[in-house]
């Protein structure tokens, strides 16, 4: 059983690599368009940050956080989300594939559908978003005043990887939802793009109930809020034990497992109803 699952994961990763490689070569057929859309991706997310900088041209702090600290949150959120979007962002097209019937062509191939779909339209231009997030993060690190300890240092890559995992789970769960409601792909945007926007601002800005919701119900807070407030040495608006700052990878694994179950249920329902 476990062996079968491992084999499927290996098969999936392999198929993902094959298909993603094909898409990279396909986009290289239109180099000019590729350059333009990569820049566009970079610029789109950059304008987000311009808006924040403009806010700080009028104020010194937002929710008690000065610009470098907000940039720190922003950079972490944008990098984690950008990575997830780069890896499996195309899953939001599932509803369209169900409607036009092209999902069926994936089901007759000897590879997991999830992997094939995740690799579908793999686009390196999404590196634009990751790059922008990483740049802001890098800039913030030169400005922000952190008391670097070993655990804080270690937490940085763990946080980015865990955050990416949590956003991946959101993408998969969103796609699973589209099996039920093919036209409702926009709901997903509230959690993906909405989620990353939310996490770009300090948790102190938001109402307690909202913070509780994204901590306990949809645990987006583990992407950056909880670990980042620990790194910055700031209190989190909710009273939580210290170890929760390190829990991102665990939360990510749990979220991915749940999203995987939702995906399987969605695919099973598709195969029994045929749309």
């Amino acid at each position: 059983m476990a062996e079968g699952r491992d084999r499927r994961i290996i098969e999936g990763v392999r198929a993902y690599g094959l298909i993603a490689g094909m898409w990279v070569r396909s986009t290289m057929a239109y180099r000019a368009s590729f350059a333009m859309t990569t820049f566009g991706n970079f610029a789109a997310t950059f304008l987000d940050f311009v808006a924040i900088m403009l806010m700080f041209s009028r104020v010194d702090a937002l929710g008690g956080y000065p610009l470098p600290e907000v940039a720190f949150l922003y950079g972490l959120s944008a990098t984690s989300f950008g990575l997830a979007d780069l890896l499996i962002g195309s899953m939001e097209r599932l509803g369209r594939r169900v409607r036009d019937g092209t999902l069926d062509t994936l089901l007759v191939r000897p590879a997991p559908v999830l992997a094939q779909l995740a690799a579908d339209r793999f686009a390196l231009r999404r590196l634009g978003r990751v790059t922008q997030g990483a740049l802001v993060l890098g800039w913030s690190l030169t400005r922000v005043d952190i008391d670097w300890t070993v655990d804080r240092l270690l937490l940085m890559p763990v946080m980015v990887a865990g955050g990416c995992g949590i956003f991946c789970a959101v993408f998969v769960a969103g796609a699973a939802f589209q099996f039920l409601a093919q036209d409702a792909s926009e709901v997903q945007n509230a959690f993906t793009y909405g989620g990353t926007t939310l996490l770009q601002y300090p948790p102190t800005v938001f109402a307690k109930e909202l913070v509780r919701g994204v901590t306990f119900v949809l645990p987006l807070a583990f992407v950056n809020w909880l670990p980042a407030t620990y790194v910055l040495g700031r209190p989190y608006p909710l009273d939580l034990p210290r170890w929760t700052a390190f829990a991102s990878p665990l939360v990510a694994v749990a979220c991915c497992a749940l999203a995987g179950l939702a995906w399987r249920a969605g695919l099973r329902s598709y195969r029994s109803t045929g749309s």
Binding site: D183, E186, Y201
Partner: peptide
Amino acid sequence: AATAAGVFTNTVFGLILVYTYQAL
């Protein structure tokens, strides 16, 4: 369904923005 999804998403984005504007 698409309309309902859009209403939901716009409301969520509105919520996020409202809190940041209030802080500002």
